[in-house]
């Protein structure tokens, strides 16, 4: 009975959880942003060339 009681109280214990994985770092996001801007300006340049 005691063991059961211990088990129910331990399973009802409050816990604080967090994901094991980390979100992307600021640096990684900055690199992505820079690459996207370069790609967009390249695409824009190509479109302008096609018009000419």
């Amino acid at each position: 009975q005691k063991a059961e009681g211990d088990l129910s109280s331990s399973s009802d214990k409050k816990v604080v959880l967090l994901p094991c994985k980390n979100p992307p770092s600021r640096k990684r996001v900055q690199v992505w942003l820079k690459a996207r801007k370069q790609y967009e300006s390249l695409q824009k340049g190509r479109r302008e060339c096609e018009v000419l």
Binding site: S10, S11, D12, K13, K14, V15, V16, L17, L18, P19, N22, P23, S25, R26
Partner: peptide
Amino acid sequence: PGCSFTVLVHTRDAATRNM
């Protein structure tokens, strides 16, 4: 500068089985 983030959830041990 250089901050990061995480998300915490306050729950009960038994409830983690639902997760």
